[in-house]
Amino acid sequence: MSIVDEVESISKNPSSVYLVVGGNDYWENQIINQLKEIIPQEERTMNFATYDMDDVPLSEAINDASSMPFFGNRRVVIIKNAFFLTGMRNKSKIKHNINELERYLDNISNNTVLLIFAPYSKLDGRKKITKKLKKNSTVINLNDFSEREIINFVKQYIDNKHYQISNDALNELFSRTQGDLSKMINELNKVMIYSNKEKKIDLNIVDLLVAKSINQNVFSLVNYLMKGKTTQAIQFYHELLEQKQDSIKINAILESQFRLLLQVKILKDHGYSATMIAKSLKIHPYRVKLAYQSVESFTVDYLQAAYLELVQIECKLKSSQENPELLFEMFSIKFSQKKNSI
């Protein structure tokens, strides 16, 4: 069953326990909306509750889930940020008694729908509670929502609204939102208002209305550098500074991107596919896909040298009064020359 079908079935035929793995704002909101449909509006105050594990002990949520509905037939209890299902350490000082959840799973209430959000890329499958929860729940894995499924879902969403979108416009929308479904839908709603008369969305409309983030602007900068277009890279860097973008932040994103390129190159040379790399590095598949395509004509030594140079620039920016523009110009020229010698 697809994620779309799984989510839509919640209000029609709810399970007693759900485990939602992975973070996705759009689907999380859709799931919560489906759960609300289970409880009549007038009963929600007493029979619909949310508990954040960063702020509230697990025992409070389990006590609520174990209680009979108040003047109703069903109760919904939502647990957010279930970090105890992972191997991570949480800064919260809240103590959680995992045994209480285990006992609940041994005696699940027929009157309650318990939903647990674990917005993480991976759970700790060695833990007893993780194994038991997976065995006794309906698992919805948002991490499995692929790039193709996102594109197809957005196409269907647009079609249902009786609009049309060109392929290049859809690709640009995907790029500018980094494949974040929630952002895509939000931007689409804005674009649809603009194109309400003709109900056609083209590249010009997306370019006009969907802003590029600082990250995407820096990705454009990286593309210039990777293609050896030194003049364009330097000019674009000046434009970012004129837009009041912080030089340290720009360098940090550059550093992050070259680190990713280096990691992807090393793993690609060891036979990893783009999908395998995305899972290994726990990075959005779209970012890995772009990096995978970019590193073909570069050596590990080149990418490593570029990354280490950016680390040195970061130190200079933070500890001296050196001109950021001059540092970037020297970096661009230096690695453009190295690229041409590959």
Rank of each mutant, 00 (worst) to 15 (best):
M1S: 07
S2G: 10
S2N: 09
D5G: 03
E6R: 06
E8K: 11
S9C: 11
S11T: 06
S11K: 13
N13W: 02
S15W: 03
V20S: 08
G22H: 07
N24R: 11
N24Y: 08
D25R: 04
I32S: 01
K36W: 10
K36I: 10
I38D: 08
T50M: 07
D52Y: 09
V56A: 04
E60M: 06
A61M: 02
A61I: 13
S66E: 14
S66G: 12
F70I: 15
G72H: 12
G72N: 06
N73T: 10
R74Q: 13
I78W: 01
K80Y: 03
K80D: 04
F83M: 02
T86P: 05
N90A: 08
N90D: 11
I94R: 05
N97M: 09
N97V: 13
E100D: 15
E100T: 15
L101E: 01
R103T: 15
Y104N: 12
D106P: 09
N110S: 11
L114Q: 09
D124G: 10
R126T: 13
K127P: 10
K132E: 14
K132L: 14
L133W: 09
K134I: 11
T138D: 12
T138I: 14
I140K: 04
E147T: 12
R148F: 10
I150S: 03
I151T: 04
Q156T: 07
I158D: 00
I158A: 02
N160F: 03
K161D: 06
Q164F: 04
I165E: 05
D168N: 13
L170G: 12
E172L: 06
F174W: 13
S175Y: 13
S175V: 15
R176N: 09
T177A: 09
K183N: 07
L188S: 08
L188M: 07
N189F: 08
M192C: 03
I193M: 11
I193F: 11
S195D: 12
N204V: 15
I205V: 13
L209T: 13
A211L: 15
A211P: 14
V222S: 03
Y224T: 02
L225H: 10
M226T: 01
Q232V: 13
Y237F: 12
H238T: 12
E239C: 11
E239P: 09
L240C: 08
D246S: 09
K249V: 14
K249D: 06
N251G: 05
L260E: 01
L261K: 03
Q263D: 02
I266S: 02
I266P: 01
I266N: 03
G271V: 05
Y272Q: 08
T275N: 04
I277R: 00
A278V: 08
K282V: 13
K282W: 04
I283F: 03
I283Y: 01
R287T: 09
Q293G: 10
E296F: 03
F298S: 02
T299N: 03
D301S: 10
Y302H: 08
Y307F: 03
L308I: 14
E309V: 10
L310D: 01
Q312I: 12
C315T: 07
Q321E: 11
N323S: 12
L326A: 07
E329W: 05
F331L: 03
S332Q: 06
I333N: 10
K334V: 15
F335L: 13
F335Y: 15
F335A: 09
F335K: 07
Q337L: 09
